[in-house]
Amino acid sequence: MLEVRDVRKSFGKLEVLSGIDLKVEKGDVVAILGSSGSGKTTLLRCMNFLETADNGTMVFDGETFQMEHISKKEIGRIRKKTAFVFQNFNLFANKTALQNVTEGLIVARKMPKAQAEEIGKKAIEKVGLGDRKSHYPHQLSGGQQQRVAIARALAADPEIIFFDEPTSALDPELIGEVLEVMKELAQEGMTMLVVTHEMNFARNVSTKVVFMEHGKIVEEGSSREFFQNPKEERTREFLRMADRARG
């Protein structure tokens, strides 16, 4: 459904992505693992064109795009079918929870307000915040804000949702509620591409794992294969470190 080939990106002299190939099938929950600075967030941002890759081909929904000189129109077309959940939530601070969810529908998709609100309410109830609809982001906890952000993503009825370290900015006791929502989405068959440090999520929820280092994919495979039978020495070392960190 979504495929990228040979994605390259440098910031100045620093090469952050050195030729990434990645394929996501419908219903896949792909966890992208890797230490900080391995390029996983940049990859995600390039795939939603928040950064422009220096090179790369994208195939999405049967259309092929050249990533380094994609037009604004094409980006708009792709973004209509995707959604993005940020590490820092990035809720619109001047809008209530419900308005955050409906804003894109009303403004970008020209949906009638009543219809947008109906969809918005459903999405907010789905993430368990039905009683927080008219709260402003400032009045919500981090976990609640992230769940609103997920509702905002869901309301757009996307074919794939990108998650950029969705729990990294949260207090430990708030991580669970966000992961729970994501797990539910995964079980419903939502296609998801998740940059994360949550090994449990990668192990138990994701169907596929991609392990990155220094702008390259070191190893990828089914979640079970990756954790039970890692092929690369570097992967084994990474998993050992992650295990030790867990205590």
Binding site: L50, T82, N88, A93, G104, V107, A108, R152, A156
Partner: peptide, 28 residues
């Protein structure tokens, strides 16, 4: 002073630069 992430969130919701500026960034 308005966090830049909100502009990106606007883009990701399918909104244009001007739409996001007018409805999200400028009011704040």
């Amino acid at each position: 002073s308005v966090p830049k992430g909100q502009l990106e969130a606007g883009y990701c919701a399918g909104m244009s630069y001007l739409q996001t500026m007018r409805r999200i960034i400028l009011p704040q």
